[in-house]
């Protein structure tokens, strides 16, 4: 079970200095600030790191870098003219498909990050527009 630590964060002893959270109002205010910091700073950074990892994983799983680096290597080390030709042909056929899949996954996640950033504002806007309507 993962248990989170709500009394502190990496930046220091926000809650433990005592001055900031000596009343319920201060706790609420702190919680709100903490939420904003988490949603707009920490999580986007975390998502970008995940995106970086995702790119690495997809690239590896689809053998993109490997095939690009060994573009002229013959098919299954068959060092005949046919082996070279077939190897290059297979790569020409395969790489565009793999790159498309890679880009699709990459941009989908990027879109998700964008969605993440606008979600609270969009929700508030939606509530306000609903009220005004």
């Amino acid at each position: 079970m993962e248990v989170k630590n709500t009394v502190s964060d990496n930046s220091g002893q926000q809650l433990l200095t005592g001055t900031k959270v000596d009343s319920y109002a201060a706790i609420l205010l702190y919680s709100f600030q903490d939420f904003l910091r988490w949603w707009y700073i920490k999580m986007p950074i975390w998502h970008l790191r995940v995106l970086n990892r995702l790119a690495k994983v997809v690239d590896d799983q689809l053998s993109l870098s490997l095939l690009s680096k060994t573009f002229f290597t013959p098919w299954h080390r068959d060092y005949s003219a046919m082996g070279y030709l077939f190897g290059i042909a297979m790569r020409i056929l395969y790489l565009p498909i793999a790159v498309t899949i890679f880009l699709l996954i990459f941009f989908l996640y990027l879109l998700f990050i964008l969605f993440w950033i606008i979600l609270p504002i969009a929700t508030l806007t939606f509530i306000l527009t609903s009220l005004i309507k």
């Binding site: 975390w46 790191r49 995940v50 990892r53 995702l54 690495k56 994983v57 590896d60 799983q61 689809l62 053998s63 993109l64 490997l66 095939l67 060994t70 290597t73 098919w75 299954h76 080390r77 068959d78 190897g87 297979m90 395969y94």
Partner: peptide, 23 residues
């Protein structure tokens, strides 16, 4: 979980790894 950024990810070659090696 290979997407866990706390755990290092090592490249394994992927689905077309065998193309560059002999049968």
């Amino acid at each position: 979980n290979f997407l866990d950024i706390k755990i290092p990810y090592y490249r394994r070659g992927g689905i077309s790894k065998q193309w560059v090696f002999g049968y």
